[in-house]
Each structure stands twice: as C-alpha cells, then as structure tokens.
Nucleic acid binder design. Structure first.
Lengths: 225, 225
DNA sequence: TAGATTGTTAATCGATTAACAATC
DNA sequence: TAGATTGTTAATCGATTAACAATC
C-alpha cells in the first residue's frame, strides 16, 4: 500500500508536477514526454523520470506519459483522490482567506471554523458558521475531521494543538509562528507554513542579487530584453 | 559587500535561526552555543556552525554566540535592518490578511493596497486605503516601492507582474498559482508561495505515514506517551 | 591555565544528472 | 521495423556530518 523511504525532496516536487499536468490538460495536451515537461518546468528530464519511478512506471517507452493518467496517479500518491474533512481554528483574516480559498476541488473540505472571539460567532465562511472554540471537543466527537488548520496567534497555538491531538486530530496545517512538529507526538503530521520566513528569503534575494546573478537556482540562461 | 555563492538551503535556514534567537532573547537567554541551539532546533550543531561561517565568524571559541549580536547579524544578512516599502495587489481575504499580518516589525511596510473591484475602493487596511489598480503606475512614479505582493487570481497574475516590472518593481511575493519566476526577467526576484502545494504535502504525509515512521526528516527518537 | 566551543577541513551521505539498454 | 523515450544503473555533484586543531 504505502511507498517506503521516498525523500522529502521528491514529495515536495509532486504537487508541482500535479499542477503543470493540470495546466497541460487545460490547454488540450494529453501526451507529454519527460523532455517536454522538463523544458516547461525548468528541471531536468532525468529528475522527472527519477522522481516518478519512485512510485512506478507511469510512462511508456517511445511514447512518453499520458498526462491525464499521470496526473491521476500523482493525485492518488498525494491522497487527493479522497475527501479530507478539515477545520480551521482562528477566523481572522487568514482563516477567512483559507476558508474561501477553493481547496475543495482537491478534496480538502472545510467542515468547521472556530474562534474564541464571540463577535465572530455565527459569521458565515462559505456555508460554514463560525463556532466558539469551547464547542470544538464536542464537535470532534460527532464529526470526522482529518486536518486542523491553525490560524491563531503563536502563544495560543501550542495549547490548542495539544487539545486537538487529545481529541484525535493527527494532521495540523500550522500558520502560527512556531514549529509545532517539535512539540507534538511523532505520529501527528505537521506542516508548518511560515509566511514571514518566505518574505525574509525574498528580502535576502532582493538585498543580495546583482544583475544576472540569480540565487534561486535558476541559471541566468539568457538576457531577455 | 555581497556574499558569493551561498546555497539556497543555507538561506532557507537563516530565517529560522533568526526566529529562534529572538525567542531565546525573549526568554532572557543572551548566550548560546551551537550545541544548545542544535538541541532546541533539532538540527546538528555542525550545520549551525557551517551555516553561520558562510557569512563570518560570529562566535567565540570557548564561549559560544552572543544571541543578540548573532540575531542582529543574521537580520543584516537577510536585509531586515532596512525598511522595505511594499504594496499588496489584491485586497481580498488573503491580501487583507497579509496587510494586517504585522510584518512591519521586520521592516516590511505596506505603503499601498490595490484592487480592481470598485466596491473595495477606499477600504482601510490598517492605515492604508485600497486604491484602484489603474492608479498603480502613477503611484509607482511617485513612491519608492521595493516589493509587490500578489494576492490575485492566477489568470491576472502574469499580466500584472509584467506591468509591475515595466514600472520598476524588482521583487515579487507571489501567491497566485503560477511560477512567475519562469516568466519574468532574471533580475526580478520572485518568491512563489503555493499554499495548496503545502496542503498537498500534508495530505501526502497524512496518507502515507504509519506510526513511528515520520517522513519529514525528524527521526522518531522516542515514543512519547 | 584548563575547559569549552568555535572555525574549518575532511569524510560521508544523499540527491541530481548523465548515460544507455530495454522496449514500446 | 526504425525512432523515440522510458526505466534504471552509474557517475557526479553538493550538502550534511564528523572530527579536531585553533583559540578564547
């Protein structure tokens, strides 16, 4: 059932393949070779084939890959063929943004939004009403929830995360400024999103890039006009 | 002035060091060794020293590092010692979330917010009023802006990005579902944030992790109760 | 000084790229 | 079949870790 020992680097690239394959299908392309895809994505064809062959031979010699089939397979590997009920904790701007994002089409269905601010109680995000955080344990007793998204301040995050784990949550998408994976049991899956760190990387590159000297791994292959 | 050939992996870790050093200072710790820091951050002491020595010897043998000085130095490397005027294009939920995020304390100052929706014109995000996108070129003529944040739909992103570059913008923080760096001149710095890819990674781990078998690079060192 | 811890070189490990036989 | 392109092994490259001399 499960694939063993796939490196983090490979996993990180799968969603990008998935997106490019979707784009190709949208533009009517049904067949793609690793060579063509490598040109579009600016990665080596070798890497694409190597990555995919971690999971099986999805291509055909002399032909390439069927874009639709390949996308489906990658989707399955990523678990996008299943619906993942999700709650959002923290109904501030970011929580609202994520609630309205449209992840549904990939199977991430927002089934509850929670906050501690009584002023937000009952506010609708799409078709879900904001509930008070103290109703959460009961909610988790009565609903299947796979993923909890944390858009709350850092100081609240650890306590809430522990409460979630107590109540059976095994996957946390964390936007608080702390590394929750270091604090929770090993069988809880955490994806930390540190937006400020992303902005700092941009700042570094902005500060340190000189013309024609890209630091992001993409070679300055040609001088565009 | 500028450091040459620092790998992307090293740069990616700097913001995290910066955050941990800030946390240490907040809890009253002024002195830290690579060994202690490595324990807290779950990385090797060797990596910490190796990383820092790309930029200079910030420590002292037999003593360790002065947390305050080190944080300051990393801040300088990341360009956080300067103010970076920033605009946000797209005043939807995500744009509002970022406008209210509090990046100011790291020097990222929101000086303008733009949208194409007339209903949003004049809406205040912190102390900045939303302006119409067609006012942007004139705005850029009259204001210094370093970073443009794009929180707009994918289909609009490429056109807007090209317009921004035409008007002198050299750094884009992109939240649209497309890889702008592949489409813009090489001297434009782009940081793509693909939230859906982050969620897909979480989904993969959720789908493929079995007890005690973490896929995120952190060893299952002990069975917590 | 003795002890501690850095800075830095060398060794290892893992990931990427190249090459090519297999095969559609 | 001939041509194309995969799947996969081997070679290279880069990043991480280990080790230890330098030195505070």
């Amino acid at each position: 059932m499960r694939e063993k020992g796939i490196s983090k680097a490979v996993i990180s690239r799968l969603p990008r393949y998935y997106r490019y394959l979707g784009d190709l299908l949208d533009s009517g392309v049904e067949r793609i070779s690793s060579g063509e895809l490598s040109e579009r994505m600016k990665v080596t064809a070798s890497q694409i084939r190597q990555d995919l062959n971690n999971f099986g031979g999805f291509g055909q010699q002399g032909y390439g890959y069927n874009a639709r089939v390949l996308r489906g397979e990658i989707g399955k590997i990523l678990g996008l063929d299943k619906v993942h009920p999700m709650i959002i904790i923290g109904a501030g701007h970011l929580g609202q943004a994520l609630g309205n994002y449209g992840f549904d089409k990939n199977g991430f269905k927002v089934v509850g939004v929670f906050d501690i601010n009584p002023d937000l109680a009952g506010m609708k995000i799409r078709d879900v009403s904001v509930q008070m955080l103290d109703e959460l344990p009961e909610f988790l007793d009565n609903h299947v929830v796979e993923i909890a998204t944390l858009t709350i301040p850092r100081d609240a995050a650890v306590g809430v995360a522990e409460m979630l784990v107590q109540n059976g949550i095994r996957a946390i998408w964390n936007f608080a400024h702390t590394d929750l994976n270091l604090l929770l049991p090993d069988d809880v899956v955490v994806e930390n999103v540190h937006l400020s760190e992303s902005l700092m990387r941009l700042s570094y590159n902005l500060t340190n890039v000189v013309d024609g000297d890209r630091k992001d791994g993409h070679s300055p292959d040609s001088k565009k006009s």
